[in-house]
Simulated assay, not measured.
Amino acid sequence: MPLLLYYAQTDLFAILMLLILLLNMRRVSDLKSQPARVFSLLVWSIILNIAADFAAHALDGFQSAAAIQAAVVLLFMLNPVTAYLWFLYTDYYLFGSEERLRKLALPAAAPLAVNAVFALLNPWTGLMFTLDEGNAFHNGKFIIVLYASIYIYLLAAMVQLIHNRKKLAKGELLPMLLYALPPFAGSLVQANYYKVLLIWPLTALSLLVIYTFVQSKTIHTDHLTNLFNRREFDKRLAELADKKHTDNLLAGIVLDIDNFKQINDRYGHKAGDSALRAFCAVMRDSFRQYDFVARTGGDEFAVILELKTATQLDRIIRRLQANVDAFNKTGTLPFPLSVSTGSGLYDPSTVSSPAVFFEMLDARMYENKKKKKQEG
């Protein structure tokens, strides 16, 4: 089988796989949301890169030098777009802020713009690639501009993920970091053997793995806060309550944001969403990475902890309150955050089931809320 025909089949399979992914996205998610738009653009950029990569290599040695120049210029301009969109997507995945995403998009496009200028000027400068007498293209001295623009985005995304790993749930960091490895390996091979078309089929595979991971995660998590949902909380609590032969104490905390309805009524639901995300950030700084934190209702959260001593529970709650107070001093929101809590240790000799334990914590939280209203 001719090598080009083999690559055509591989590329076609990758494109079909990505089109199926897009159809599934349209079926199960809201494509009007900013992160969904970025992810769908990411998919389309890979499809376009696969097509452009194949076209450039299919035309290699073609009689028309102008056609080859145009195809390769387009390919080189498209190449970093996928890495740029991946960087934006990881930023939203970490911070969940559409406003931050919009502010970041333009300045982050600087490497993209530099690469585009070099690519567009190449027919006159020959800096990024050249054509030989047979109209076959070869990498030029400044091909490094292309690879640098790609690796800047990939490395920036990796650094950002590692630096903000506390914002990720347990087990999320590694799949996100591994996204770049297959296309990175493919780019190293293709940089030395440019007729071996590996980068974009491998990138498509990476994106499919990420999408599968994200989709499986959405079954277990709350879409707004990225915390575990009520179903996962109930499941985890039941598992730990049934756990035998452990020296750890099982504890729980139920938390509720005070005056949340008034926040929504006065400042709007967008401000309410910001309050939820801000409180989630405070909780991530307050609880340990292996504590199980879930959103169990509109403005209600619950935490499952395994402790060595009962006094640890009081210390953790005091740390949470101190972090809430510290956040309020920053003036990030136009209103202060306040939270009521109900906590306790799980004792199977006095509590008949995990569900009853949760109800007990919930009742204690409302007692705390009522007491605060009476005092203040």
Score class of each variant (00 low, 15 high):
Leu202Cys: 06
Pro201Val: 08
Leu250Ser: 06
Phe87Asn: 08
Tyr93Leu: 13
Ser274Gly: 04
Ala36Met: 14
Leu198Met: 14
Leu78Ala: 09
Pro348Thr: 01
Asp273Val: 08
Gly252Ala: 11
Leu240Pro: 03
Ser353Gln: 06
Phe301Asn: 10
Asp132Met: 05
Lys103Phe: 07
Glu133Trp: 03
His163Leu: 10
Ile263Thr: 12
Lys244His: 12
Asn264His: 05
Arg277Lys: 15
Thr82Lys: 00
Leu31Phe: 11
Tyr147Gln: 09
Ile144Pro: 00
Val145His: 02
Leu19Tyr: 06
Ile162Val: 13
Ile150Arg: 03
Phe260Lys: 06
Ala66Asn: 11
Asp53Asn: 15
Arg266Gln: 15
Leu333His: 01
Asn226His: 15
Leu104Asn: 13
Gln160Val: 00
Ser40Gln: 10
Gly297Met: 08
Asn248Lys: 15
Val356Leu: 09
Arg37Cys: 04
Ile257Pro: 00
Ala294Val: 08
Ala113Asp: 02
Ala66Val: 12
Gly171Leu: 04
Ser340Phe: 07
Glu359Phe: 00
Gln190Glu: 04
Asn79Ser: 10
Leu88Thr: 04
Leu21Tyr: 05
Val43Ser: 05
Lys270Val: 15
Ala110Lys: 08
Leu208Lys: 12
Pro107Arg: 13
Ala65Asn: 03
Leu240Ser: 11
Ser216Gln: 15
Thr130Ser: 03
Val114Ser: 05
Ala67His: 02
Ala56Glu: 09
Trp124Ile: 07
Thr130Gly: 01
Ser29Ala: 14
Arg266Gly: 01
Ala185Tyr: 06
Arg100Cys: 09
Leu168Ile: 08
Asn192Thr: 08
Leu168Thr: 09
Gln190Cys: 02
Glu306Ala: 11
Ser338Met: 07
Ala14Asn: 09
Ala110Phe: 15
Phe13His: 09
Trp200Leu: 03
Ala241Lys: 07
Ser64Tyr: 07
Leu227Met: 12
Phe39Gly: 04
Lys371Asp: 14
Thr246Gly: 11
Phe39Glu: 09
Gly252Tyr: 05
Phe279Leu: 14
Leu121Gly: 07
Tyr89Cys: 03
Val254Cys: 11
Ser97His: 05
Asn122Leu: 07
Ser149Lys: 05
Gly344Trp: 12
Val339Gln: 09
Ala180Gly: 10
Glu172Phe: 02
Val356His: 08
Leu131Pro: 00
Leu320Gln: 05
Val351Ile: 14
Ile253Thr: 11
Lys372Cys: 08
Ala363Asp: 08
Asp11Lys: 02
Leu12Glu: 11
Val28Pro: 01
Thr130Arg: 11
Ile316Ser: 01
Asn368Ala: 14
Val254Gln: 12
Leu42Lys: 10
Asp299Arg: 12
Leu112Pro: 02
Ala119Ile: 02
Asp258Trp: 03
Thr130Asn: 05
Ile68Asn: 02
Ser187Gln: 04
Lys270Leu: 15
Pro80Met: 12
Val43Asp: 04
Tyr92Cys: 02
Leu177Val: 06
Phe357Gly: 10
